[in-house]
């Protein structure tokens, strides 16, 4: 067994919340810069230029890239040989979020109840997903999720006969319906398979994978490339003003599923696709 103190997890998560909100991941930043250079449509090029300027200001002046500093999604890959000491793991995560959002001057965007809607005032609770894995390491991913894009996400339980064609149509239709709302250029996380609940998690996890790293399965890597191209043929463009750069990247994650089912989930993220990963 290896001991990890709950306090150390709290301190780490505090820092990660601040970092994630001020600095876009390298894969996202460099793709926005590349698109600003290659975008053929003038108004789109102009919008992308402003996004580049914005991410540079945020990084240099330690400001949040976006005012929607998100609902904090925290993924824990917990080695089964780890023993958490000095406190409750979930509470250690929430406390880290609490401190990060206070100390980092981040927006508190969480309401305690979905219908009665009183703000909790400290951006907790986080949405925590724990996977137990072999070994004695704890890998933490902090991903603050903005809701302008979250609101444009969709899920469908397709019949198996819908096949690859049905999946592709659903993904493209989701992006088309979202139009200018999720702050394009977007990043698209697609989950295929599993159950009703698992497929949504797959789509969320697809957003955690760098957009310059294709699915290791060549079949799905090909589908990622094809769908990204099709989405960019929609012409929505940055901010919806028209243009080629509707999406920066598209990742697919899959899971075995039932003989009767073909669940598909599309989780939309804006160009502020934030995630920081640390291993303790």
């Amino acid at each position: 067994m290896r001991d990890i103190a709950a306090l150390d997890i709290t301190a780490k998560i505090r820092d990660m919340c601040i970092d994630a909100n001020q600095k876009l991941p390298d894969d996202i930043g460099s793709r926005i810069r590349a698109c600003a250079g290659s975008e053929p449509w003038p108004q789109a090029r102009d919008a992308l230029g402003k996004l580049v300027e914005n991410m540079d200001i945020a990084r240099n002046e330690k400001m949040p890239v976006c005012q929607d500093t998100g609902l904090t999604c925290v993924f824990l890959e917990l080695g089964q040989e780890i023993h958490i000491t000095g406190g409750d793991l979930n509470e250690a995560v929430h406390e880290g979020v609490r401190r990060g959002y206070a100390d980092g001057f981040l927006r508190k965007s969480v309401v305690a109840d979905p219908l009665r809607r009183k703000n909790t005032g400290d951006n907790t609770p986080a949405v925590i997903t724990v996977d137990i894995v072999p070994g004695d390491k704890l890998t933490i991913t902090v991903a603050p999720k903005g809701f302008g894009s979250e609101n444009m996400s969709r899920l469908i339980m397709l019949p198996p006969a819908a096949g690859e064609k049905g999946v592709k149509e659903f993904v493209i239709e989701t992006v088309r319906l979202a139009g200018p709302n999720p702050c394009p250029p977007i990043v698209i996380g697609v989950g295929i398979g599993g159950t009703f609940d698992r497929v949504a998690l797959l789509a969320k996890k697809a957003l955690m994978r760098p957009i310059d790293r294709p699915n290791p399965d060549k079949y799905y890597a090909g589908m990622e490339a094809e769908l990204l191209e099709k989405v960019n043929e929609l012409g929505i463009g940055p901010q919806g003003f028209g243009g080629h750069t509707t999406a920066l990247g598209l990742n697919i994650e899959t899971h075995p599923t039932h003989i009767a089912g073909l669940p598909v989930a599309v989780n939309i993220n804006c160009h502020v696709t934030r995630h920081v990963k640390v291993t303790l």
Partner: peptide, 13 residues
Amino acid sequence: FGAIGGAAALIAK
């Protein structure tokens, strides 16, 4: 009017 979504640090200036 549309402002640039996500350009929050730039707009704050």
